[in-house]
Structures are given as structure tokens and as C-alpha cells.
Amino acid sequence: MSAPASVALVLVSHSRELARGAAELAAQMAPGVVILPAGGTPAGLGTSFDLIFESLVEATDGGRAAVVLTDLGSAVLTTEAVLDLADEDVVARVRLADAPFVEGAVAAAVAAYGGAGLEAVRAAAEGAGAVFAGAASAPRVAATDTGAVADTAGGAQRELTLRNPLGLHARPAAELARMVGGFDATVTINGVDAASVLELMKLGATGGQHLVVRADGPDSSAALDAVARAVEGGFGEA
């Protein structure tokens, strides 16, 4: 478990259910991160100035920063209107992410859980759209048979086989992303950034598939060991 996240999320939607659902989904991958749904109005669908205002105040309580994700147009307008009228010290710690609502919330939550700062959490949210846009044409690294540990140019590489039938679906992807975020190492799996839950999910790796895990940096061997334990343990699902 990392230190309490310093960045909270506020999810602004026209729909109370949509905001709550996205918050629930993101929270599953980022326990301890403050994720506040701000959806709907007392009258039904719509965005509420008061609710967004209160959510931002709560999200930035105690010096925390906050990233706001929004769905359709007026969610952005209402949030901007709130930021126009809110206290300057709150506004200075809030960033509005131009990101897909669900994918952005998940990516931002995992980044915040990993201890990322305000701009990095916003970047994680905004990068989520590009990750999914490229998913259809993403290259899949072919499985190979070479095994064990191979030291290459200061880093280390290991090949693993996914044990659990569902492979790198959302929960294991989040588990791996959080895990590698805790090491002083740059880790890739089949060529993608293992600290990005969305990149990992994009691999579409299912049970039986080989993974090429590479780590560079001072903690590279510890990171590889941790990834190997998780994969070989089937993420508790096998």
C-alpha cells in the first residue's frame, strides 16, 4: 500500500448513476483514492453547480489536489463556472481533464493510487483516449519460447505465461500497474508501459499467452520478481 494519494478525482456527469458507476469502477482499482461522483441534479438528468462546487471543496480538503472528469458539454461549462467562482486556493489545486469519462477515470485513479502528482494524474486521464483509439490496430507481440532471465544492457528481461484464463483484464492489469509503480524501475510488458493499466488491458492478453517482461533501473530485478509472482500466481484467479 502506498502513501495516501494526494490527488482526488471528481466525476461530473449528467447522470447520477453514470457518475456513481464510474466512481465505483475506478475505486475498485485504486483503494484509498478519494473519488467523488457529482452526477445529475435534484430534478434528474443535468449538471448541478452546487453539487460540483461541494464536491470540489471536499476533494481539495486538507491540501489535496483534484482532477475533474466530465461527460457531455454542459458538465464542462458548469465545472468551469464553478471554478470561476470558487476560492483561488481551491482553483489552483484543480485541473479539468479533457478525457473520455470512464477510461479517463480509471487511468487517473490508478495514477493517483500510484502516488502521481496533479499534472501526471491529469495526463494519465487525457492519455486514456489515445490508448483506446489505438487498441484496434495495436501490435501484439508474438509469443516466444526462450525462457528465464536475460540480462540486457543494464536491465533485465523475463518471459512468463499467463495462468489465469481471463488474463490481463481490468483487475489484474490494475494490480500490475500499481505494483510496478512502487519500484524504482521502468517496466514494460510486451513492449507497453506496465505502469499504465490501460496499456496493459489493450494488450488483450488472455490465459496461456506469453508475456515478455522487461525492467530497467535500480529495482529492476525486484520488480521482475514481483511481476513474476503475481502472474504465476494467476492473480489469485487461477
Binding site: 443535468g46 448541478s48 453547480f49 452546487d50 454542459s74 458548469t78 463556472a81 470561476d84
Partner: peptide, 18 residues
């Protein structure tokens, strides 16, 4: 208006009146 109009009209009219 900002507090009670749920759609885009809330922040738009709200900002105009402000």
C-alpha cells in the same frame, strides 16, 4: 440560475448575468 438550471443554459445564462 447556475444552481438550478441543469443543462448548459445554467452556466451560460449564469455567466451572462454575472
Amino acid at each position: 440560475l447556475m444552481s438550478t438550471v441543469g443543462g448548459a443554459a445554467g452556466p451560460l445564462y449564469g455567466t451572462a448575468y454575472l
